[in-house]
Design a protein around this nucleic acid. Structure first.
Lengths: 235, 235
DNA sequence: ATATACGATTAACAGCCTATTAACGCTCTA
DNA sequence: TAGAGCGTTAATAGGCTGTTAATCGTATAT
C-alpha cells in the first residue's frame, strides 16, 4: 500500500512554517510526495512545471490567497482535486471555496487522523488511490490468487470455489505467511474453540487446502510439530 | 439544468420533521427527486427497492443510526455517494463517518446555500450531473437486457415482464454481478426482514429468475452455500 | 357483492453440500 | 520404542437449497 502512494504528488501551500512542517511530515510518512510552497505565486509556478494528483491550499496566504490560486489551477486543470484549509469557520469563505469547486474544506484546527482520512477519501473518489480496502481481501499465493471476499482461489482460468471455513482458514495462513501460526490461534480464530475434535477437523481442512494449492510446488503448508503450521509463499 | 436534475433520486433520512421538510423542499425546488425516510430500517428497505444517486443521512436516528445505515448501503452499492448530517461537530463522529467512506460531512446548522453547493459538487464529482444518470436502471445481463424501471427482461424480440419483487431482487444481483451477495443483505433490502419463511420465499424467486435467465448459458446465479448468491455475468 | 386474476407466501419433498467424526496409517519426539 | 501428533480418506448427520404445488391475500372487473 505504502509503495503505491509514493507515486502520488501533492501540492501543499501553507505559509505557517510550523503547521506546514507537521502536515508535510504526516503526509510523507504515509508515502505521499509533497511539494510545499509558502505563497501563491510559488504555487502557481510549481503547478505549471509539475503534475499533481491533489492540491491542498491554505486560504490566508501572502501575495495571492488560496482562492486565487485555486482559480488559476482550475483554469489549467479542471479535474485535479482541491482541499482548502481555513482558520475561519466563516460560512462565507466556505461558500466561496465550494463555488470555485473545492472538493473538500477543512477547518483549522484539525486532527491529523481526520486530515489523512479526508485526503485518502478524496484520492479514492477521484480514482487516484485504488478503491477501498479491497486489497486486504486479495492475497497472492505463488501462482495462485486468493480472493477472500469471493471465497475463491484462482490459478489461470481455473477458479476453485472455497467454503467459508476454508476461506477463513486460508486467510489466516496468508496473514501469517512465512511465519509460524499456532494451532490454538487458528482454532480460536476460525472455530472459536480449541478442543480435540475441532483440532482434527482443522487437520482435515489443512489437508484440503494443501490439495487445492498443490499445483504450485513452491507453495507449502508446513507442519510445525506440536505447535502449528507455517505457510511458505515465495516472493 | 433543472430539467436534467429531475432524473436524480436522493435518499434523505432525517427524523426531525421540521428540518426534514425544509431540506426536502429546498432540494425539490432545485429539481431533485427526494425520498424522505424517518428511520434507518425504512431507509434500508427503500434503498433495496429503488435506485438513488445520492444518500443524505442524519446520524442521530431512531432505531438504527446513520452509520449503520451507511454501512448497509455500502454493502449494497459501494459507489453511491453519501453525505452525513450531524448536530455534533465532534471529531469522533466525523472520523467514524469518513472511515465508513462518507463523501461529505455537514455540521448542523448549515445554510441552504452551502448545503446545495455541497450536494452539487458531490454530484459533479461522481459524474451524475453530466450524463443524465438514466443508465443506472438498465443492466446488461449476457444476451439479456434488464430494465429495472420497466420491470422487464429483454432478449431479442422477447420481452418478459417481471413482477416488482422479481425486479428488485434481480437489480440487487446486478449491482453485485460477479460478487457474492449475502442472503441477509438481499432479504433486508428487498423484503425488509430476514427470517426463515422470507428466506424460503426468496429461494422461490431465485428459482424463477434462474428459469428466466436460462436461455443464456453463460449467465448463472450460483449459490454460495450458507452465505448467499453470486450472479455470474460474462463480460 | 361476487368472481376472477395475479402475485406472494407457505408447505412439502427431494436433493445437495458441508463440517464433523471415525478410522487407519504414518511421523515425529521424548 | 511408545505414545502423542498429524495426514488422509471415507462415511454420516444435519442444515441448506431447488423446485413444484397449494394456499393466501389483494386488486380488479363484472
Amino acid at each position: 500500500m505504502t509503495e503505491e502512494k509514493k507515486n502520488i504528488n501533492i501540492l501543499y501551500v501553507e505559509d505557517d512554517m510550523n503547521l506546514g512542517f507537521v502536515v508535510k511530515e504526516v503526509l510523507e510518512e504515509k508515502g505521499y510526495t509533497v511539494k510545499h510552497c509558502m505563497d501563491g505565486d510559488d504555487a502557481i509556478q510549481k503547478f505549471g512545471t509539475d503534475s499533481f494528483q491533489l492540491c491542498i491550499l491554505d486560504i490566508m496566504l501572502p501575495n495571492k490567497d488560496g482562492f486565487e490560486v485555486a482559480e488559476f489551477i482550475r483554469k489549467v486543470d479542471a479535474s485535479v482535486p482541491i482541499i482548502f484549509l481555513s482558520a475561519k469557520s466563516l460560512s462565507d469563505d466556505k461558500i466561496k471555496g465550494l463555488k470555485i469547486g473545492a472538493d473538500d474544506y477543512i477547518t483549522k484546527p484539525f486532527s491529523t487522523e481526520e486530515f489523512l482520512l479526508r485526503v485518502e477519501n478524496l484520492l479514492k473518489r477521484t480514482g487516484t488511490l485504488d478503491n477501498d480496502g479491497a486489497d486486504k481481501d486479495v492475497f497472492p499465493i505463488g501462482k495462485y490468487t486468493f480472493n477472500y471476499k469471493e471465497y475463491c482461489l484462482i490459478l489461470g482460468d481455473d477458479i476453485k470455489r472455497l467454503t467459508e471455513r476454508e476461506a477463513n482458514l486460508l486467510r489466516l495462513l496468508c496473514l501469517h505467511k512465512n511465519q509460524i501460526i499456532t494451532r490454538e490461534v487458528l482454532l480460536k480464530s476460525v472455530w472459536g474453540k480449541d478442543d480435540y475434535f475441532t483440532g482434527r477437523s482443522m487437520d482435515v481442512f489443512i489437508s484440503k487446502l494443501r490439495k487445492y494449492l498443490s499445483l504450485d510446488e513452491n507453495v507449502k503448508i508446513q507442519v510445525v510439530h506440536g505447535i502449528g503450521f507455517k505457510m511458505i509463499i515465495p516472493n
